[in-house]
């Protein structure tokens, strides 16, 4: 195997990894603030992919311009879900929370199956067949676009948490919910906004992933697990960690796919997850609890 081929696979994995990272960012935000483990994350991702698919096939809107629409739609969905359902389950034990999100996931996946059927769908843009070449390096155009957009959305999110009043208030809730309530913050509403933001991240990631991959309803649990692997690698609750984790998983998938066997690639991800859970449970960039 020559170096150029290797370089191309690596860079492809890296770019895809950024999109994975954006998806995991949503999971990380939701867990970091509410301590809720979103087992419906992959399902929300697949919803977003189908939304982008419909917008393209029915209205001719390409996934990147469709991104604000889909992300906005998922924000509303996430906001309402947290506001009217999950907020009632915040104090209860984790297995009940887990089942609640699982039942949501079940409803979403089977709803999608009913509407779209089990077949894989994809879209083809003009850009799908173009590529950039820099010296020996050949990069798919859509992959570059997806990765840059993912990075941009992540940067926006970072700025939101850093510089806006709402973002600061959400961070306050994450650090100390009781204290946040004492100083007069509407914690329930901020939680709803947070879940909305987490959902919007998945929405954006779903649009971008549709540029790179097929979509079918049964992908959802794979994406949920993938999201967990990524955030735990990077550190639950850490924004930079989620992106780093995404890139690592993207790289390991791409490399194990060509070096060993494509069907073994998930074993590497799970092996990595076991190692990180045991040796560094707070993740690579996460803070020690």
């Amino acid at each position: 195997m020559d170096a150029t081929f290797f370089l191309n696979v690596t860079s492809g994995g890296l770019l895809t990894g950024l999109v994975y990272g954006l998806m995991a960012l949503g999971l990380s935000v939701i867990f970091g603030v509410m301590r809720v483990v979103n087992f419906a994350h992959g399902d929300m991702m697949v919803v977003a992919m189908y939304a982008a698919f419909l917008l393209f096939t029915k209205l001719g809107i390409e996934p990147v311009p469709a991104l604000p629409l889909v992300a906005g739609g998922l924000f509303v969905f996430g906001y309402l879900l947290q506001r009217f359902l999950i907020n009632r389950f915040l104090g209860v034990t984790e297995h009940i929370q887990f089942l609640l999100l699982l039942s949501i996931a079940m409803i979403i996946t089977n709803g999608l199956l009913m509407v779209f059927g089990p077949d894989a769908r994809n879209i083809q843009l003009d850009a799908s067949f173009e590529s950039y070449s820099i010296g020996p390096l050949v990069l798919d155009k859509v992959r570059v676009i997806a990765a840059i957009t993912a990075g941009g959305v992540a940067a926006l999110l970072w700025a939101f948490f850093r510089y806006t009043t709402t973002g600061t208030a959400i961070r306050a809730c994450a650090d100390n919910p009781v204290g946040a309530r004492v100083v007069g913050l509407d914690v329930e509403k901020l939680y709803a906004v947070t879940f909305g933001i987490g959902a919007a991240c998945v929405g954006a990631a779903g649009c971008l992933l549709l540029l790179l991959m097929d979509v079918h309803p049964h992908l959802s649990s794979d994406y949920t697990l993938l999201g967990f692997i990524i955030v735990i690698l990077g550190g639950l609750g850490s924004l930079g960690g989620a992106l780093l984790g995404g890139i690592l998983v993207g790289l390991s998938e791409a490399l194990s796919g060509v070096l060993i066997a494509p069907s073994l690639k998930s074993m590497f991800s799970f092996g990595l997850l076991i190692l990180v859970l045991l040796l560094r449970p707070h993740g690579i960039l996460g803070k020690k609890p």
């Binding site: 967990f228 073994l264 074993m267 859970l277 045991l278 449970p281």
Partner: peptide, 20 residues
């Protein structure tokens, strides 16, 4: 000292690992 949700994820990871 892998606890709670993390322990649950550890058990999933082992099951999936063995599945592959």
């Amino acid at each position: 000292k892998v606890m709670g949700v993390y322990f649950a994820l550890l058990t999933i990871a082992f099951a999936e690992f063995v599945r592959v």
